[in-house]
Simulated assay, not measured.
Amino acid sequence: MNQDFWTALVMIVLLLLLIGLMTLGWRNRSRSQAGLFDSLPQPPADPGAVVLGPLTGVYVGSTVAGDWQARIARPPLGHRSAATLTAHTDGLLLELATDVVWIPRADLIGVRRTSALANKTVPGGGILAARWQVTAPVGRTVIDSGFRADDKDSYPRWEALRGDAAPSDRTDTPTSTTEEKQ
């Protein structure tokens, strides 16, 4: 056997090792985040009248509010996906390729533009981020969920959306904005 064979074999083994370590890291992150929330709210049978949307684009991911790199790995918030975002009178409906995320208006804090979220950066505030609260084993966890729309001209209308959520009572959740952490 020649040297090219052994070089290729070593590279394949290293690549498989790297993929295995990345998978293990993602699984450990998901396990360590078990205390962030019990379960996500389910969409109601009648979410109310459509206020805005549907808006097509890409779901960027979700983070613990205030830290644009603290990506949440728990399903269904963990993976980027093609998505559709629709604002109803009772909340926001985020339809992912394989799942649905419902953000009740009572849990929505607000919607804003940002340039960085879930380890993705986009110049000029290209990410629409919804800040919302979800029930945790102790108190509430504040989450930023990002969406990069195909039509960014509608962002000002989305930013005008306000929720009914009161400020979080959880003391270990940062309150600074994503822009402040950059």
Rank of each mutant, 00 (worst) to 15 (best):
3 Q>C: 08
3 Q>S: 07
4 D>E: 15
8 A>V: 02
10 V>D: 09
13 V>G: 07
14 L>T: 03
14 L>C: 11
14 L>P: 01
15 L>W: 10
15 L>E: 11
16 L>R: 08
20 G>V: 09
22 M>G: 08
23 T>W: 08
23 T>E: 13
24 L>I: 10
24 L>Y: 09
24 L>H: 09
26 W>V: 11
26 W>H: 11
27 R>C: 05
30 S>M: 14
31 R>C: 04
32 S>H: 12
37 F>W: 09
37 F>M: 02
38 D>F: 10
38 D>R: 15
40 L>Q: 04
41 P>N: 04
41 P>T: 00
42 Q>T: 08
43 P>S: 08
45 A>E: 12
47 P>R: 00
49 A>I: 05
50 V>A: 12
51 V>N: 08
52 L>G: 04
53 G>Q: 03
56 T>R: 10
57 G>R: 04
60 V>T: 03
62 S>Y: 00
67 D>P: 05
70 A>M: 08
71 R>E: 13
74 R>Q: 07
74 R>A: 01
77 L>G: 01
81 S>F: 01
83 A>V: 05
83 A>N: 05
85 L>C: 03
87 A>E: 07
87 A>P: 04
88 H>Y: 12
88 H>T: 03
89 T>I: 02
89 T>M: 01
90 D>K: 13
92 L>R: 02
93 L>S: 02
94 L>A: 03
95 E>Y: 00
97 A>D: 10
100 V>D: 06
100 V>G: 05
100 V>C: 10
101 V>E: 02
104 P>F: 05
105 R>E: 00
107 D>C: 13
108 L>E: 01
110 G>Y: 08
113 R>K: 12
114 T>D: 01
116 A>C: 15
116 A>G: 10
116 A>F: 12
119 N>L: 12
120 K>H: 11
120 K>E: 15
121 T>C: 04
122 V>R: 07
122 V>D: 05
125 G>F: 02
127 I>W: 06
129 A>W: 01
131 R>T: 12
134 V>C: 04
136 A>M: 09
140 R>C: 07
140 R>S: 14
140 R>G: 08
141 T>V: 01
143 I>H: 03
145 S>R: 01
145 S>E: 03
145 S>W: 04
146 G>C: 13
147 F>M: 00
147 F>V: 00
148 R>P: 02
152 K>D: 08
154 S>C: 06
156 P>I: 13
156 P>K: 09
157 R>G: 11
157 R>S: 15
161 L>M: 07
163 G>P: 03
165 A>H: 15
166 A>S: 11
167 P>H: 10
168 S>G: 12
172 D>H: 08
172 D>C: 02
172 D>V: 05
173 T>F: 06
174 P>L: 14
174 P>K: 08
174 P>E: 09
176 S>R: 15
180 E>C: 10
